[in-house]
Design a protein around this nucleic acid. Sequence first.
DNA 1: GGCCAGGTGTACC
DNA 2: GGTACACATGGC
Length: 287
Amino acid sequence: MPLRIPTPFLDLEATLDGGQAFRWRCVDGAWEGVIGDRWVRLRQEGGDLLAETATDPGDGAWLRHYLGLDDDLEAIVRTFPDDPPLRDAVQACPGLRLLRQDPWECLASFILSSTKQIVQIQQCVALLCDAFGEPIPGPAGATSPRAFPTAARLALVTESRLRDCKLGFRARYLAAAAQAVDAGRLDLEALRGLSTAAAREQLTGLPGVGPKIANCVLLFAYGRQDAFPVDVWVLRALRELYFPRRRPKPRTLQRFTETHFGPNAGYAQQYLFHYIRNHRPTETRLS
DNA sequence: GGCCAGGTGTACC
DNA sequence: GGTACACATGGC
């Protein structure tokens, strides 16, 4: 029997396939993916979310947590500054939620993300999981899905074999991160008890992890609303929507992201990211 | 073939 | 302090 969860606003496609996580795919109108060691197939029906699993789903608290279903989106949106860009961005996709991912999977995935398109990140993650992930129970008759490879497993893999997963120059960075986590030099669970700034400092101590990737991990895994990842898309959104015909310095933009968007700035960032990628076509937009 | 992609590290001024 | 470029790889 699938788990049935009454759901508030939830846009599954925008949430699962919007550049936060890289393992979800849509099959016959349902979203299939892996959360920790569980394979799951998600579908919306009426006002409910239906979750089909291969093992006992329990009360589904793990799924509610992952999807951020306890976030009160209406209350969050009310904390946003009342400006046209954010109004439009929220209006365009009112069910977009921030995920709460496993920190290691999130860190590893975003280490792969630098100067790659989202479809290519998805491809790399799939290759990594196929090569190094542990098989887990899946739907009957299909090949076993796999968990995301642990840091301990990847710490033993040669850089050359990581490059086989098309990681390019990022292979060295992933290997270093896996070794740091496996050896305990970086304690991802302990970051939960640190301030955002202190946690960011720990993350950016890894080679290949700068402020952008660290902020993605802080936001998409730890739910830190004071983390505001600025990538090429968000930069474009800030410039076009908030500083048109001006040439703001990076320092100005950073100050703006830290002060303008309020206590749920991380959520605001995700709405802007989704909006600029999907609802404001430009010549350089991907089709 | 040139440009771009959910960037970062390094070498310069 | 800032700015330019290399770094692998694939899509368009």
